[in-house]
């Protein structure tokens, strides 16, 4: 193989990549926040005593979990505007697609977490006169968060990487900048390697924090 790696332009492209990092972080934060919050309410529907709510929750999860995120993004950018009669910005369409996808997955994390808490915890709280709502809030949920922290961390990492799909809608995030620079410098291997490292550096602190949090909770309980 005669290919000579040449990383000399990396310094030059860093400012452009940095702009991409900012957009990626914005996408990540927005999709994760919306996904986790919406997913929580979807999970409540999934465990609701009312059958119609359970059905709706289930339908949401199956649709947004089983259709590729890439198709959801493209659909929200090109097809959804036809239905609502208004064009979305690429960023909004990306946030919408990735958030709903994230909501479907996190709903399942919440649901399995809620259902994994022993019945005795409900009984222990209700036996001292606590309402179902208070029991859920004070006793069940805190245990769900603890128990499901590794699963939520996985999801957060996954979402960070899924934001790269937004590049197909020309959202100027990290992946988009990488592809643009590749065709400018004709050095796609070096540039994609650099972009990969930037993703790693961006995501790793989050997994590290989560692991530290897990260790701290283990010490406590």
């Amino acid at each position: 193989m005669g290919y000579q790696f040449d990383f000399s332009m990396v310094i030059k492209i860093l400012p452009v990549l940095w702009r991409g990092v900012i957009v990626t972080l914005e996408l990540w934060a927005a999709c994760l926040a919306i996904g986790l919050i919406l997913g929580f309410f979807i999970a409540l529907m999934r465990v609701s005593p009312a059958a119609p709510l359970r059905f709706l929750g289930r339908a949401f999860v199956e649709i947004f979990r089983n259709i590729p995120a890439l198709i959801q993004l493209i659909w929200f950018f090109y097809a959804f505007p036809i239905l609502i009669g208004a064009q979305l910005t690429p960023f909004t369409a990306a946030v919408l697609g990735i958030s709903l996808n994230t909501a479907a997955f996190s709903a399942e994390i919440y649901r399995s977490g809620i259902q994994s808490i022993e019945r005795g915890q409900w009984e222990g709280a209700m036996a001292i006169g606590m309402s179902r709502v208070a029991t859920f809030r004070r006793v069940i949920l805190p245990q769900v968060f603890r128990r499901m922290l590794p699963a939520f961390t996985n999801r957060a990492v996954e979402v960070a990487k899924v934001t790269s799909l937004a590049s197909v809608l020309s959202v100027h995030e990290l992946m988009y900048q990488g592809r643009l620079l590749s065709s400018t410098y004709y050095r796609p291997l070096e540039i994609l390697t650099t972009v990969g490292i930037v993703y790693l550096v961006m995501i790793y602190p989050m997994t590290w924090t989560s692991a530290a949090l897990e260790r701290r909770m283990r010490r406590k309980a």
Binding site: E118, G120, Q121, G124, A127, V139, R146
Partner: peptide
């Protein structure tokens, strides 16, 4: 009520 399995809140 006091239960067979205690049902204390572990957190």
């Amino acid at each position: 009520m006091v239960f067979q399995q205690f049902n204390l809140f572990p957190h």
